[in-house]
Amino acid sequence: MHGLLRERLLSRRDHRLERGKPPQPLLFDDMMEPTNEGARPGSADRAPGGDPPGPQEGQAPTGAPLLELRNVDKNFGPVQALQGINLIIPEGQVTALAGDNGAGKSVLIKTVSGIWSPDGGAVFWRGQRVHIRTPKDAAALGITTVYQDLALCDNLDIVQNMFLGHEDLHLGMLNEIEMELTARRTLESLAMTTARQIRQPVASLSGGQRQSVAVAKAVMANSKLVILDEPTAALGVTQTAMVLSLVKQLTSQGVTVLMISHNLNDIFQVADHLAIVHLGHLVASGPASNFNRQTAVDYMTTGRSNRETAGSPALAAS
């Protein structure tokens, strides 16, 4: 029985290899168009466009700022949750947001996803000033946030979950075949073959697979920026590896990732950039290669580091 499944899996991958490259869902087509801001050249390749901010590029895909926060403040009554945050999220890369509990990570992503708007400062999307006041505004820009609860319906299958809220209709009826094909293409483009049966209810999936479905849903919704809230917090070793490889895969699809994480192992495995918040201040940000475990821990726990590292992190004004 199992051998047969395996055979089917293999034959499906053969099919893909024949075509030379992973199938690109149609959804990605408009991402390849030049934007009005000119931050990206009109080529489908991610040639370095504009001037990358960090000292580290080379293997970096694009690096032009996709989202930029300037002097963003957020208060809850007398509590200053965020103070003067200056953060650049480069396009097509993985930015990790780290910090201790209560440092302001969640406040920061909720501000970007439109749960609440900032009290001060400005947000720029591809160089243009934007106002993200509601989650709908964020979705319109192409920002999708995958919260820890994942927002999946256990009783529905993978396809049904991925299309929830924007089902494909044919003569007023659900177009199951088209939805299944699109979902399958998206999952394959993310190299997600671990969820072998796409018509399996989500309840029967493992934690990592569920996380992957939630991410695939965001990709299928044509997101430019996917924000992951502690994607590996509840996962074991192999499941974590699976999710991290998915994160890597996202950037190869041209999707930018902002990942909140406590876990330095995860951060150093996948992040191109690292930003560390401490007590509402952005205390350090820069290419992940500028940090090591010690300095990262120092910043997360005390807000500063005296240790010598390969390159000194670009310190944010605080």
Partner: peptide, 12 residues
């Protein structure tokens, strides 16, 4: 975890 696991699942 071994970082080597990551590239192994990069397609194709």
């Amino acid at each position: 975890m071994a970082p080597a696991q990551i590239p192994s699942s990069t397609p194709p």
